[in-house]
Structures are given as structure tokens and as C-alpha cells.
């Protein structure tokens, strides 16, 4: 009985943020993703072996521009979560590349476990680990370089934009902590 009662929830949704917060979140995400996307589409381009943009950066943008106070959005989590998850994703793809469903599931599950254990929990890291498996030929060809470019470098660019943009308004600040 208690098991089903727990599914009802116990508390209510936090309040909505102000329009001010919405606008600054938009601006941060626009600038952060712009930087990574410009490198991806114009510096590297279609034919290049390297890429800069992966889907999980969209998720990171939600946190580091839209929920700047969250512990999930702090530099330690952003950088640590992405890089560790990328390494795990690549390793498990290389081990289980003949059984992709195992590679996909173990990479995400292990990424969460390792992020928790290292206090670097960053939800987009789960996507980063998964992309190492499902990202296609180009990503597989990178091997462990995937953890540096695009993952490490892309996350770093987004971090720099977050530091520059989030600290402009008086009422906003970033980060709450570094490590």
C-alpha cells in the first residue's frame, strides 16, 4: 500500500522563475551553443573527421545557463561528468560493440554510477556516454579522443561562456563552487 502511495508524490513543484531569469537563460544558451556550433559547422565543417557538437551539450545548456545554482550545473559536475562519461562510453562500446544493446545500457548505467561516486553527477553525461555507443561511424572512429574533442573541449567552451554571461547581471552568479 505504501508502495503505491509513494507514487502520489509528497510535495509541490517549486515556483516558476522570473522573466528576468528566463531571458538570461535564453541569452546564455544562445551564446554558449553558438560558440560550439560555429566551430562545428564552420571551422570543422561537414567533411572533417572531427566534430564539436554533440546532443548532450543541449542538455548541459539547460543546467549551466538555466539552473545556474544547481549542484548539477557546477564546473566540477559539467567537466567531470562529461569527460568521465565519455571515457566510459568509449570503453564499453569497444568491449561490447558486437552487442550494442549491452554497450548502450551499461555505458549509461555505469556513467551514472561513476558520476555519483566521484561527485560529478551531470545528467547530460548520461547522453554523452550513450552517444559514444549510438553516435555512428564518425564518433566510433575517434576512439578515446572522443573524451577530449568534442566532449572535453566543447564542455570547456560552454563553461567559459557560462562564466562570462552568468556573472553579468547583478542578481546572478556562477559558479556556486568549482570543485
Amino acid at each position: 500500500m505504501n508502495y503505491f502511495r509513494k507514487m502520489m508524490g509528497t510535495t509541490k513543484s517549486p515556483p516558476a522563475v522570473s522573466l528576468f531569469e528566463i531571458l538570461w537563460s535564453w541569452l546564455g544558451a544562445f551564446l554558449g551553443i553558438s560558440c560550439v556550433a560555429l566551430v562545428h559547422y564552420h571551422l570543422l565543417g561537414e567533411g572533417a573527421e572531427l566534430i564539436m557538437m554533440i546532443g548532450s551539450f543541449g542538455a548541459s545548456a539547460v543546467l549551466i545557463y538555466g539552473a545556474t545554482k544547481s549542484s548539477l550545473a557546477q564546473p566540477r559536475n559539467l567537466m567531470g561528468g562529461h569527460v568521465l562519461s565519455a571515457l566510459i562510453g568509449v570503453a564499453l562500446y569497444q568491449i561490447f560493440h558486437d552487442h550494442l544493446w549491452i554497450a548502450a545500457s551499461t555505458s549509461v548505467a555505469t556513467a551514472i554510477a561513476v558520476m555519483h561516486a566521484t561527485k560529478t553527477l551531470h545528467p547530460p553525461g548520461g547522453a554523452t556516454a550513450l552517444i559514444a555507443v549510438i553516435g555512428g561511424e564518425k564518433i566510433h572512429a575517434l576512439g578515446y579522443l572522443y573524451a577530449v574533442i568534442p566532449v572535453g573541449l566543447g564542455a570547456l567552451m560552454m563553461l567559459i561562456v557560462a562564466l562570462l554571461v552568468n556573472n553579468i547581471p547583478k542578481k546572478r552568479r556562477y559558479p556556486e563552487f568549482w570543485f
Binding site: 510535495t11 509541490k12 517549486p14 515556483p15 522570473s18 531569469e21 545556474t68 545554482k69 550545473a73
Partner: peptide, 18 residues
């Protein structure tokens, strides 16, 4: 708590219950 959360600018990553 809900009222206090409204007074703090930005998204707080915690529920009133927590």
C-alpha cells in the same frame, strides 16, 4: 518555503518538501 523560494532569484534545484 515556497514563498521564500520565490524571493530568491534563479531556479532552485530543490523541492519545498526536501
Amino acid at each position: 518555503i515556497y514563498e521564500a523560494m520565490k524571493e530568491i532569484e534563479g531556479y532552485l534545484d530543490i523541492t519545498p518538501g526536501d
